[in-house]
């Protein structure tokens, strides 16, 4: 059950996408999102879709997995689409009931919004599916490095992020275990009203918090006893290095964004 959560999960592999520098992938995602939000026409959406499909193909991640990741977000996506459907002003009215107007413009915006969101989510999922959390935070730290000059604690933030990510599976497993243990004592999490269910979670939350604090304590001691004292003067075991393939990928990313902008200017 809980173990089946795919959000933000890493699927190890050895494709070109897997081997790219995490910084390249992070920048690519930013370029991709920028392009998605500048895209205005069918043609530019087709370009974006082709780009996404090719990337997914190269990554050897199955589309099924990407769609599975969409599941928890279906409500958000549907809600946005419906809002756009009815609250876009336009002249080509399809029908009108009381104050609610359905226009062609609304349908168009809603459809674009839907495609945009789905593609946005799938693109970012591709990043987390092909990049281990550790290299992801590593890349993020290196990317944000310049911010150190204005006293942003980049290393500490990155460390907190890696620790948080490192403990997600542990805590999920722990929750699973505690839930099983309480179920074995007859706890019922599946039936009853919302209030009853929230109350039923108490026997899970209390032990979970206790163990989370215990773990944090133990981790802090373990880190200190290995002389961890923050980022100052710390070297890395795996130093990130941009390869030729990274530069080529970035070039492709810039070109896609440029293409979308050109298409916009041409009004296609």
């Amino acid at each position: 059950m809980l173990k089946d959560i795919t959000m933000g999960q890493f699927f190890p592999g050895d494709s070109l996408v897997h081997r790219l520098d995490p910084r390249t992938k992070l920048i690519m995602v930013i370029l991709y999102i920028a392009a998605l939000f500048t895209a205005k026409s069918y043609v530019s959406y087709l370009v974006m879709a082709a780009f996404l499909i090719i990337s997914v193909r190269i990554s050897t991640i199955k589309f099924k997995m990407l769609f599975k990741g969409l599941k928890p977000l279906i409500i958000v996506i549907a809600f946005t689409a419906i809002l756009n459907l009815f609250f876009t002003t336009g002249e080509h009215v399809i029908f009108e009931v009381w104050r609610i107007k359905l226009t062609w413009e609304g349908v168009r915006t809603a459809a674009f919004m839907l495609v945009r969101l789905v593609m946005l989510i799938m693109g970012t999922f591709l990043l987390t599916y092909t990049t281990s959390p550790i290299s992801l935070t590593d890349g993020l730290e290196r990317l944000l490095n310049p911010l150190k000059k204005i006293k942003v604690p980049v290393h500490e933030l990155a460390m907190m992020m890696s620790i948080a990510m490192r403990f997600i599976p542990t805590l999920v497993e722990e929750t699973d275990k505690i839930m099983s243990a309480q179920k074995a004592r007859g706890a019922d999490f599946e039936t009853g009203s919302i209030f009853q269910r929230a109350k039923a979670l108490l026997p899970v939350m209390v032990p979970l918090f206790i163990s989370a604090f215990r773990r944090a304590d133990e981790l802090a001691i373990a880190m200190e006893s290995r002389c961890y004292h923050g980022g100052e003067g710390r070297t890395r075991m795996n130093v990130l290095r941009m390869e030729k393939r990274d530069w080529i990928t970035l070039l492709v990313g810039v070109l896609v964004l440029a293409l979308v902008i050109v298409l916009n200017i041409l009004g296609l």
């Binding site: 099983s180 243990a181 309480q182 074995a184 004592r185 007859g186 163990s211």
Partner: peptide
């Protein structure tokens, strides 16, 4: 659900489930 009560299961480190 009845089976849960008829087959009692004590997990590993059961003290972590006290609440």
């Amino acid at each position: 659900r009845q089976v849960r009560f008829q087959v009692g299961l004590v997990f590993q480190y059961p003290e972590y489930q006290l609440f």
